[in-house]
Design a protein around this nucleic acid. Structure first.
Lengths: 221, 221
DNA sequence: TTTTGCATTTTTGAATGCAAAATTTGGAAT
DNA sequence: ATTCCAAATTTTGCATTCAAAAATGCAAAA
């Protein structure tokens, strides 16, 4: 198994919440499970620590990183900046085909909204944001975005989605698609920022309780 | 020696250009020099690879990362976004004392400009930008900024600084300080973006020739 | 019953050793 | 002289091993 693959698999374990935030990472167990020895495992853990997903305590092992409210706020702030930048760049560089693909994804997402399928809605939502970042054509930006969103998602916050908020989010997405189609970079940046600011407010207001055995289910309040 | 220290020392070696971009990283030599064995060294190299300073080639060792023009462009673009964000946040959060400190640093930098001391000027310049990022009060942002600027600086580009360009850069810095003092976040963001865009154009135009034994001296054309 | 000090066990962090892969070297054939 | 191929050497990647640090458990004392 290649180094990058080891990193990827542990990252997945963390993102899936299989090892909850704050929990110790059992080296021996992971070694057995991944069928590797401690050396490559530890190399991977150090990389993930640099990414912010793992916390290394000298001589006291590693833990799955636990985010504070402040961390969460900071991450959202950066994410806003990255998405706004991506939106501006995307408007300069996106192809018609890419716009069409996003429009299709948008329509599918709206259908999930109408169906009341929150999980599929979130999935589609994410795909759209990622498509915009990809369309920006900047791998450095894409890398940072992936890393930051992973850390946010890692904090398995569960905001109770209200019908009003949901409806509003969909409206915002209409505006996002519209700005993209008009290739209005500045406008898109503004909308994306506002969109994320709202999301952040919801999340922080809900307290995104990062508890050990926290439940993962998406709720509709 | 602690893990973080090993990473730091190797990073310094790379940033100093002691191992030039594209050159192989001699594991054995570095081990002897840092007086550590290969295990911790390799852990550090993997972390630096995740940061983008080192390139790992499976079964073929590691090299100091070499940036293409595209990489450089991407890094500058992201840097612009990060600084703009930092500027906006800084205007919301900066204290009077911090503004005073930056004003002092600015004055010192202008004096270096008048003295024609390019090295000191660059040093002061960097300090100001870093102070703005710090004033944003967002460690996540600060971390990304550090990492991105390190990679840019790593590409020891040497733009021949012309008197006109230098004078213009100083003018821009006056505007930066002014916007900060007025706490005009949007304005500051714009200025910072333009400032970096100009810098990028200079660098890319100069070709930032990333040659093995490239000279490190700062020039005034 | 709770707390403190010490011995034991476990776990971490690093060095060494070994097998596999790649590079280099040397020689032969064209 | 050049090119191609095979052997030798070097280097990589990982498993194992070893020393040190921290956690645990237990007994004795308050």
């Amino acid at each position: 198994m290649l180094h990058e693959e080891v990193v990827g698999r542990i990252r997945a374990i963390l993102l899936d919440g299989e090892i909850p935030p704050g929990a110790r990472i059992p080296e021996r167990e992971l070694c057995e499970r991944l069928e590797i020895s401690r050396t490559p495992l530890r190399e991977a853990l150090k990389v993930l620590a640099a990414e912010g997903l793992v916390q290394l305590l000298p001589h006291r092992g590693s833990r799955a990183a636990k985010l504070t409210d402040k961390d969460m706020r900071d991450l959202f702030e950066v994410c806003q900046g990255l998405e706004a930048l991506a939106g501006e760049l995307a408007c300069e560089r996106i192809t018609d085909a890419e716009i069409d693909a996003i429009a299709t994804a948008h329509a599918a997402m709206v259908q999930h909204y109408r169906d009341g399928d929150l999980i599929q809605y979130y999935r589609g939502n994410r795909a759209i944001h990622e498509a915009i970042v990809t369309a920006a054509g900047n791998p450095v930006l894409a890398g940072l975005y992936t890393s930051v969103t992973a850390r946010i998602r890692r904090a398995r916050y569960v905001t109770p989605m209200t019908p009003q908020r949901w409806a509003f989010a969909v409206k915002e997405h209409e505006a996002i698609l519209n700005a993209l189609q008009r290739r209005d970079g500045v406008g898109l940046a503004h909308i994306l920022r506002a969109h994320l600011r709202h999301k952040r407010e919801e999340v922080l207001q809900a307290g995104f309780a990062e508890t050990e055995g926290g439940d993962l289910t998406l709720r509709i309040a």
